[in-house]
Simulated scan of single mutants.
Amino acid sequence: MAEMSVTFRSIPGTQAAIGVAGTHTVVVDRPPGKAGGLGLGFNGGQLLAMAIGGCFCNDLHYVAAEMGIEIASVDVEVTAVFDGEPLLVSAVTVDVKVTPADPGADVAGLVARARATSTVSNSIARGVPVAFHGGD
């Protein structure tokens, strides 16, 4: 079993937060004018879509290496649809275009295997439980 942790802390002088994972950071905020947001960073929905797309991009490269396929370029677009109260993601679409260095490479097989092993999208699709602690 592997474990990863990230930390979020308020950015002084703003109502935004900075997320830290190892040596990497990301700023999270709300759009300007929404609950004190200044639009300084991504909102949660954008980060969720980025997690799905980013994980899938990495998985494409992992699987390509296993299959001996050299990838020339990857183009992935993730669209998340939000509905209801509270606002929840009701659907996610991932559009994928992979250009291999060898035009005869099995791109369909590559995408299918990457999809089958993609950690984030599979976790969401299976309904991973989320536990909150503190605040009391």
Rank of each mutant, 00 (worst) to 15 (best):
M1C: 03
A2K: 10
M4C: 07
V6I: 14
T7K: 13
R9T: 09
R9V: 08
I11P: 02
P12C: 02
A17S: 15
I18F: 06
I18M: 13
G19K: 03
V20C: 02
A21N: 03
G22C: 10
G22E: 10
G22S: 06
G22D: 10
H24L: 09
T25R: 00
T25A: 00
V26K: 05
V27P: 00
V28Q: 11
D29M: 03
R30Y: 09
P31A: 15
P31C: 11
P32E: 15
P32Q: 15
K34N: 10
K34Q: 11
G36R: 03
L38T: 12
G39S: 07
G41T: 02
N43K: 09
N43W: 07
N43I: 07
G44E: 13
Q46P: 05
L47N: 09
L48C: 11
A49N: 08
M50G: 10
A51Q: 02
A51G: 13
A51I: 00
G53D: 02
G54I: 04
C57F: 03
N58V: 05
D59C: 02
D59F: 01
L60S: 01
H61V: 06
A64K: 00
A64Y: 01
A64M: 02
A64H: 00
E66M: 10
E66T: 04
I69T: 02
I69R: 00
A72D: 03
V74T: 09
V74W: 01
D75I: 00
D75A: 10
D75C: 02
D75H: 05
V76F: 00
T79E: 13
A80M: 13
V81C: 11
F82I: 15
D83Q: 15
E85A: 14
E85K: 13
E85N: 14
L87I: 12
L87Y: 05
V89W: 08
S90V: 08
V92Q: 13
V92M: 13
T93C: 04
V94M: 14
V94L: 15
D95T: 12
V96I: 11
V98F: 02
T99E: 11
T99F: 03
P100Y: 03
A101F: 05
A101Y: 02
A101V: 12
G104M: 07
V107R: 01
G109N: 04
L110W: 06
A112E: 15
A112L: 06
R113G: 01
A114N: 02
A114P: 01
A116Q: 10
T117R: 14
T117N: 10
T117Y: 07
S118R: 01
S118N: 08
T119H: 10
T119A: 08
T119C: 05
S121E: 11
N122C: 10
S123F: 03
I124L: 15
G127Q: 15
V128T: 15
P129A: 07
P129Y: 02
V130F: 12
V130K: 12
A131T: 14
H133E: 12
H133T: 12
G135R: 05
G135P: 01
D136C: 04
